[in-house]
């Protein structure tokens, strides 16, 4: 399996995640997009770990990332929950407190 296909898959996945993050209105959908982008990075790490057959540092790092991403998802969801409680909506267009 040529390495280019895998890297293109990773890039595609990252782009899909980015588009989800930028375009979706719902905060939870944005979180899903972020997860996609993380996984795109994971794919890259896994792909490049074939150049390190002895230690497989890339694959091990992916495991860490998945763990941390799970924790991050929990925290992010809690934040979204709080935001929803506070603004009574999860629509990011409506939550524009940072407007100058």
């Amino acid at each position: 399996m040529p390495i280019e296909h895998l890297l293109i898959l990773g890039a595609l996945l990252f782009c899909i995640g980015l588009i989800v993050v930028v375009t979706r209105k719902n905060a939870i959908a944005v979180l899903i997009g972020i997860e996609l982008m993380l996984n795109a990075a994971n794919i890259n790490l896994v792909v490049f770990s074939q150049f390190d057959p002895n230690q497989l540092q890339g694959q091990i790092f992916v495991l860490f990332i998945i763990t941390v991403a799970a924790a991050e998802a929990a925290v992010a969801l809690a934040i979204v929950l709080k935001v929803f409680h506070y603004f009574k909506t999860a629509d990011l267009d409506k939550i524009n407190e940072l407007k100058g």
Binding site: L18, V21, V22, T23, V30, L92, D93, I95, N96, E97, L98, K99, G100
Partner: peptide, 17 residues
């Protein structure tokens, strides 16, 4: 200059990207 600060997080991300 204030129109840049739209408060829309997604726009920030887009521009950062």
């Amino acid at each position: 200059t204030r129109s840049v600060q739209s408060g829309n997080v997604q726009a920030y991300i887009l521009s950062a990207m």
